[in-house]
Design a protein around this nucleic acid. Sequence first.
DNA 1: TCCACTTCCTTCGATGTCGAAGATAAAGGG
DNA 2: CCCTTTATCTTCGACATCGAAGGAAGTGGA
Lengths: 378, 378
Amino acid sequence: MKQRLPVQGAQGDLLRLVATGAAESRAGLARMSGLAASSVSLRVEELIEAGLLVEEGSGTSRGGRRPRRLCLSPTAGVLAVADLGAHHARLGLLDLSGAPLVVEEVPCEITEGPEATLDLLSDAFDRLLAERVPPSVPLRGVGTGVPGPVDPATLRVVTPSRMPGWNDFPVADHLRARYDLPVLVENDANLMAAGEARSWPGRENLMVLKVGTGIGCGAIVDGRLHRGRGAAGDISHVRVSSDSSVICACGHHDCLEAYASGAALIAALAEAGIEVRHTSGVVDLVNDAVPEATSMVRTAGRRIGEVLTVLVNFFNPDVVAVGGSLSAAEPLITSIRAAVYERCLPLATRDLEIAPARAGRDAALLGAGSLLLDAVLA
Amino acid sequence: MKQRLPVQGAQGDLLRLVATGAAESRAGLARMSGLAASSVSLRVEELIEAGLLVEEGSGTSRGGRRPRRLCLSPTAGVLAVADLGAHHARLGLLDLSGAPLVVEEVPCEITEGPEATLDLLSDAFDRLLAERVPPSVPLRGVGTGVPGPVDPATLRVVTPSRMPGWNDFPVADHLRARYDLPVLVENDANLMAAGEARSWPGRENLMVLKVGTGIGCGAIVDGRLHRGRGAAGDISHVRVSSDSSVICACGHHDCLEAYASGAALIAALAEAGIEVRHTSGVVDLVNDAVPEATSMVRTAGRRIGEVLTVLVNFFNPDVVAVGGSLSAAEPLITSIRAAVYERCLPLATRDLEIAPARAGRDAALLGAGSLLLDAVLA
DNA sequence: TCCACTTCCTTCGATGTCGAAGATAAAGGG
DNA sequence: CCCTTTATCTTCGACATCGAAGGAAGTGGA
């Protein structure tokens, strides 16, 4: 079962406020939405009538009458979201508040091309829906992250270096043809940033770094994901100063990614005679206090930090959140912090927080849910 | 005469659309505002009644009946705006569409402190109003740019390196006490960016560089000025790679400003035995094809370009506009362009335009008008 | 226990906005 | 020149939103 969400006008805003947890009573909705209390009551009545909201007991008093707590009906619908990686797809179903109902990871070679990959994805969605969701609960939207740039205007993948066969493929159209629902297609780092943003309420400007096998980055500006022309957020191919000279996959010399990514560290360790297979292995070495590994992670952190100084001065964010598998190595974030604090303007670092990412492994799925909800309630 | 603009609700939006030139008929307003044509008619009627709009002949037909052209009444009001520099203040009066009525430059030492400077400014405003504006035309708002960071929450100047005595001074409150009108206080580079933005219709993401005695920068993100925590846009104290080592006024080594600003070039020329007093002198030397000067400007452009690569990859703007007195030296922009195009991701430079600023010497005043209009019509 | 006070929520008349329909005014083609 | 087409603008009834007033349901202090 699939079905467009039947909301119009102010109903969407109210539903969104309940979904995101910003408000959970009529009075709270009135405060947050700016609508008059009377209007809120009317719209809420309609949303309850439509089966999208339910009244559930009463909340805690703020000094007067207790509010009647509102929450999304569990039957209001679900969202199907995924995050495509090079060899795996992480996918799941969320309720309309963005909370995961089920998440799983399936092997999936993105090099097999868009049709095969997206069909595998859709089949997995359909299976999960059949297994986990009563037929009466409709699917309301579909979204996926891809490991490459997405043109925000057309929702096509553009010049993806790691996705042969995907160039200019109309991902959104392909999914829409199957589901006829609001569809979201977004770069994976951007999704992660959007997901992370929900873990930092009140912070309007965030940089979210993903340091894993590669290096990704997304930016939240004034509370909204910054897309630019579709390529925004890249920092992996920034030139770093170095004595040596390494050629990056992108064709340039001395890219940050060629020095500070998990893949680069694995290669450097191999040269030092230490064999490691995955980025997690590097983290293990650091936790075992292997000096070479620790030193290399420190250097990587410093290099990332040096690039960040430029961006922190310019963008002046509230938070730099560092995630990705390599962020589990504690010296990484410490040395990023040291480089930024040493070199940035005091004004820019005065209230800046450089901290581990909070949203966890499902950050990208949560981000997809957050952005998709906006599309569903548009 | 001063007076808050008596607009409410949709009237403000409509007036703003006329003021910015986005629409000039009722039908155009309906298209741009999203309001129904009938509502537009009603509100426009009220605005004409209030003397803020006037009907002025008819516009050009788009295939049917000719629209009745609307424009702001010349008696609707004026804005008083200024841009404080280190030794001069540029100030003027604008009509509500943001067009300058009169602009002049007065000597003004910002080191004399906030009270003296702001009083000088206010006196100049009052004089211009008395001389140039009929008493029946009310002042609607006051705004100024300052050469230092401004906290967007409190509109106070914070830790300004070149404005001794101004730290934490409540500039906005001081002006509001005298005028009791909407007041704008903003960093000068940000004002320039806002002014430049109006010269690039349709472009939503801009970086605006001001290369003069110092180096300033402002960013327009999704059509709005990005403030961050008040320090956004700074690129002058980014570290550049260099053989030598120069100490900047900020206390760090090898800041961009210490290598690529007009002041740095004047110092470097002096070392080469060539005496120049102002940045304009450097431009003259370049235009006279003095090889040392040309070479130095090229190097400065390349250094600026190298810093820009990081920001262009990350921010992915539509336009980088280069202004400031040194931008008149043609090799500057050429070498910036070369550095950015050589090193940035193709996706980021695909539709990127790196061009001379269009807004001219009054850019900051125009920007102040643009931002102030938003405050006046809020 | 009673009562003043706060907060939550609804009722009701006034006002704003909408869309459909029609009046007005011009362009363009036979 | 007339008629069709297109666009602009206004009129009018339906609906949404607002604010004020008041009822409902709590809290906290005398």
